[in-house]
Write a protein that binds this DNA or RNA. Structure first.
Lengths: 345, 345
DNA sequence: TTCCCATATGGGAGCGCTCCCAAATCGCTC
DNA sequence: GAGCGATTTGGGAGCGCTCCCATATGGGAA
């Protein structure tokens, strides 16, 4: 019984119905659970499904039900974005989607607004997840016109009416200060992103700075913010400047992924021991924090949770349940060996 | 004109037909190019498509044509696999697929054989790409029963009848030796994977070793293979042992990702300068080679090409064109600063 | 003019499923 | 024992597209 023509040999719902001695609609209802079926019938149908190895035709289903059970996921595959974080996020989205009977279609950032239109317009996907959202993202107007629900990872400049999820960067900035304050530190500096980042791009840098500043004020901690270019040389200069400005400095927070390791190295070269003389808390992916010259206490992007929350929100929207516009995930701080109780000089 | 019911407001082919004053079948043929259409008609139809913003319904298309224009891509999202390589591969698959009018459905390794059956059985995907294939992979029997074409990344123990793509590891092993031989080295050791890898798993370790050995013989280079556990301590011990065994050693090849950096560090600690005293060639992803204590001359997995070749092979199979069972991509060696001409002692 | 072939388009069945609209069956009550 | 609600199932139109089977039109040869 070789199959000559690829595909047209699939078991169909009418085959199952005949095998079980019921009508196709009954098989359909057994599958969807949209009406009550007697226990006896349900069992017979299920046995036939198993016996014949029936799998419903996705296209036919999508056509008839107006639901494809597919989510589109648009990922940044460009360099610069920290890859393991993206991957972890993607894995979480796929796993969570599968738990809700959905599959995931992968789109690249390059497809842009047109890609979103195509996938939504063709009814290939029921809903969309868009990662790496910029402040003025040209995909956002498109998302607004689409009649499909979507969730953004990150916050654009005008998030009204959009469903957005992200780490609560303000709380993250505050959490770093609180951790250090609890260890007795009274003077903490933030080494941040390059100056231009504080004006444009995604806006999270400002929020970290705000949380940092507020928590500093609340805990009586002297807290100064230093933007810094993302080069090892700039890191070294910043380290020198910080020590010159604040001889009493005992702790820093770093929010600038590329220079986490160089900055720590620079302070060590200047004769400071970490954590004995200087505590360091980084805001960066775990991979970086773990691999720096030493394991660093850090706050990471909760990629896993971000992914599953995004899917859960989409499922709620698809079911017509109300969802909050903004979801801010609480930061979690992992204590490693770069932060310690402040030692009196 | 607010859309009340999500989805059922899409422009359909009959709308386009009416707008252009032709029949739906003509619109379909304009889109598919499966029969000649007069230039005048084609233009009118195209204008109507643009004017109405028509996008064919993917499900309807899949149902009628028995083609979903979707490829399933099963990726290993488990740790251990080098993430940037997987990501690069995925990006390449998506980009190439899009160039062939296909989309990509993302599956995780955990879905396993059942996931492949589901996606093929539901006609969600026309074809499958399976990455990270093990020697005795339980997805392979499933792939054989499926009536959809597939491409494997990697070679299982019994690849007959399957289409497989991978780096030519034998050639890669040889290329490393040839590079070093050309630089005048006459004694080269291979620091390989842990011993157990040489027995089970994916078989590529053996092939590297074979190419290494053969090229050594062909170029009159003394070449010894040392399996090595993937820990920094083991790397250090191996470095010491190599120097003890071969005082005349002037070059090594490393094929064991986690210990690339530790091994180089170990040799330096033992007083050898790289590349003055010892040339090093690594077989590892570029990310690792670039970030080791120094930029290392290396041979990488050509993830980008692997992805596009896999898609091209699938397209050929879908079109009924014949394809080779095995595709071995030629290795490419990137010269960095860890390999140099052998200096006479 | 007539016939034929080439070129260009239309009509509509059917892909496999869902879900609306019955219809059938079975106690119960009155 | 006729009527009625409750429970369970069947029938089949229709989702939007593709592609087989015509049909229409035009020009050239006989």
């Amino acid at each position: 019984m070789p199959v000559t023509e690829r595909g047209r040999a699939l078991v169909k719902i009418s085959d199952v119905a005949r095998h079980a001695g019921v009508s196709p609609s009954t098989v359909s209802y057994v599958l969807s659970g949209k009406r009550t079926i007697s226990e006896d019938t349900r069992r017979r149908v299920q046995e036939s499904i198993d016996a014949l190895g029936y799998t419903p035709h996705a296209g036919a289903r999508a056509l008839a039900s107006n639901r494809s059970n597919v989510l589109a996921l648009m990922l940044p595959l460009r360099p610069g974005i920290h890859v393991p974080v993206v991957m972890q996020f993607a894995a979480s989205v796929v796993t969570t989607a599968r738990a809700h009977e959905h599959d995931v279609l992968l789109l690249t950032q390059e497809e842009g607004a047109d890609g979103l239109r195509r996938v939504a317009g063709s009814a290939l996907a029921d809903a969309l997840i868009v990662m790496d959202v910029q402040l003025h993202d040209d995909r956002i107007p498109q998302l607004r016109t689409l009649d499909r629900p979507s969730v953004l990872i990150g916050f654009p400049a005008e998030p009204d009416g959009l469903t957005c999820v992200d780490l609560d960067f303000r709380a993250a900035g505050a959490l770093c200060v609180e951790h250090l304050a609890a260890l007795g530190h009274r003077c903490v500096d933030l080494v941040g992103s390059p100056p231009e980042v504080y004006e444009r791009e995604t806006g999270f840098a400002q929020r970290v700075a705000e949380g940092f500043r507020e928590a500093g004020a609340a805990h009586g901690v002297t807290s100064v913010i230093h933007p810094c270019e993302a080069t090892p040389e700039a890191a070294r200069r910043t380290a020198e400047r910080l020590l010159a400005l604040h001889p009493e400095l005992t702790a820093i927070v770093v929010h600038n992924e590329p220079i986490v390791a160089p900055l720590v190295a620079a302070f060590r070269d200047l004769g400071l021991r970490v954590p004995e003389d200087l505590s360091v808390v980084a805001l960066c992916p775990d991979e970086i924090a773990e691999r720096a010259p030493m394991p660093l206490t850090s706050v990471a992007i909760p990629a896993e949770e971000l992914g599953s929350r995004a899917v859960q929100l989409l499922m709620a929207k698809l079911d017509g349940r109300p969802v909050p516009d903004a979801t801010l995930l609480p930061p979690r701080l992992t204590v490693r060996s770069s932060s310690a109780v402040r030692r009196p000089a």
